[in-house]
Design a protein around this nucleic acid. Structure first.
Length: 256
DNA sequence: CTGAACGTC
DNA sequence: GACGTTCAG
């Protein structure tokens, strides 16, 4: 019985991995990723949903993703001017994702985690980011300001080398909320950006206060270890330990 | 680029 | 809801 159960788990895991392994990108040029989205998914105590072009971990209590993960290559940021669609409730979240109505007249933006601007490879890619599981309440001055600066900075890096991007917020018990479903308003958002760097993996990570500021985004670099302490999530744990320790314990920007 | 809101059908 | 316009950073 126990063996049968474990065998079933094995195949479920295998199917889940297969469902996202199609994004495997052949090594054809310097701009192609040498890794898959499945390779570096963060740990999660919640439901992990794999969409076609990104994955997320949905925290039902806070009615938003605790993290999203996506690969960013040059094909994702080619010039395009798609019409913005309406946000849709993500029906792949089994517990039910929040409604976009929570944000209506809340004073907060529907702030993308996986940016729409990071999914310009096709209209379908772009539209897939407009799911309510991929947004958090963000002050407009934050979303269009400091946070937007960071997103654009990352897109500039992606022109040089493919990146693995993890985005999320610090979801603690004492947060305020918006809407009938009480969507938490985070006080910090983070981005962790990984690149292979010709076999010498490098990470940049940012922990950004959810507030209007004139400070440079570069003022908010932190170590991955610091974000792990705040979230309880293990990032890039699939890397060999020596590499993981090297790139997560500091915020040395060498190689960027 | 990141977004919201308002009028009109 | 769809669409066009206007506005804010």
């Amino acid at each position: 019985m126990a063996i049968g159960f474990m065998f079933a788990l094995f195949w479920i895991q295998k199917i889940q991995n297969q469902s996202i392994s199609n994004e495997n990108i052949a090594v054809e040029s310097q701009n192609d990723a040498t890794f898959n989205r499945a390779d570096y998914l963060p740990t999660s105590n919640h439901q992990v949903v794999h969409h076609r072009t990104y994955s997320l971990s949905y925290n039902k209590k806070h009615e938003q993703a605790e993290w999203t993960a996506h690969i960013l290559t040059t094909k994702d940021i080619q010039p395009a001017d798609y019409k913005r669609p309406y946000f849709e409730i993500d029906d792949m979240v089994s517990t039910g994702a929040a409604s976009w109505r929570n944000y209506k007249n809340s004073g907060y933006d529907r702030g993308h985690l996986v940016p729409a601007g990071d999914r310009r490879g096709s209209l379908a890619d772009y539209e897939e980011t407009f799911l309510t599981s991929n947004i958090s309440p963000q002050l407009h001055e934050f979303n269009a300001g400091n946070w937007n600066d960071l997103e654009q900075k990352i897109r500039r890096y992606a022109k040089m080398e493919s990146l693995y991007v993890v985005t999320g917020s610090i979801l603690t018990d004492d947060l305020s909320s918006i809407g009938n479903e009480e969507v938490s308003v985070p006080e910090y958002f983070y981005k962790i950006v990984y690149k292979d760097n010709n076999g010498k993996p490098t990470i940049l990570s940012f922990l950004v206060p959810h507030a209007k500021t004139d400070r440079s985004i570069n003022d908010f670099k932190v170590s991955v270890d610091h974000i792990e302490e705040l979230t309880g999530i293990d990032f890039f744990s699939q890397l060999p330990d020596d590499i993981e320790i090297r790139i997560e314990s500091t915020y040395d920007a060498t190689g960027w």
